[in-house]
Amino acid sequence: MLKGRSIICPDDLSIEEIDDLFLLANDIIINKESYKESCNGYILATLFFESSTRTRLSFEAAMHKLGGDVVGFSDFNSSSVAKGESITDTVRTVECYSDLIVLRHPKEGAPILASNVLDIPLINAGDGAHYHPTQTLTDLYTIYNYKKKIDNLVIGICGDLKFGRTVHSLIKVLCKYKNISFVFISPDKLRLPDYIIKVLDKEGIKYIETDNLDNMKDLDVLYMTRVQKERFFNEEDYIKLKDKFIINNEVLKSAKEDLIIMHPLPRNNEISSEVDLDKRAVYFKQAKYGLYIRMALILKLLGIK
């Protein structure tokens, strides 16, 4: 039962609850018309303390497609926080006007802090380099749609594994599925943080860490990430690392025919535009699946479905 619950980290959802969301999202895709008034009278608040395009727009589009309304802000400077208001005071106030809050904040743990003072559900839309559970749902739903399963897969994750919150969230949930193994491809300075490695070791998950793209032929899924400039205190470090791994047609020659190439977007140079024409490139479809899975999540948290 997801009604009234907050979704802060990927562990907040069981495999069964994720499967239920997949089934509901499938039904939304098939029967779009029957959902267009499901959220009549409900208000979603989107509080984005950090810039976002697709996450915010996909939440807002999801709510509009369900017939609900949206309030909120996407510019930190236009909010009362710019006047020194605390996060907890802001969400307590917004709770008075809305039924569900979507929060993105640059500081890690802000959604836990916020949800502790709320009586309505809150969805973490990304907290710094920490978690981004709805991107994880998007990623899982994409894999599920292309592979028809999320078991027995070799998953390559490439790029910024240190600060990439989508990566941390995805790995934690994938650990719950059967016989998943990982190939982590990153520069040494952007390797996975210790707390994720500890999760992998604790669960007995097979993984290798490497700084090259030589293992391409083994992969069922290749998940690319952008090296995020905003996570670096030092621009020199960012410039050194940003173009370390670039996927192009040449690199993909040794990859499986049924590989899927994913990316949470936005991308910079890490996937060459020539790859967009490759049928294995699914990142734009991935963004579309993100809309449907968010619609499903909104319906579940509000207790409508």
């Binding site: 904040h105 500081k107 743990g109 802000a110 836990i112 907290d127 380099a129």
Partner: peptide, 28 residues
């Protein structure tokens, strides 16, 4: 990058994750 670095009057909480190494993880 932790929210405790910006929010005033926050209740700091750490949970034990490894007794032998005395490792704790921040609640947030």
């Amino acid at each position: 990058r932790c929210v405790t670095s910006v929010e005033n009057n926050i209740f700091n909480k750490f949970n034990l994750i490894n007794e032998e190494k005395k490792e704790y993880s921040c609640e947030y």
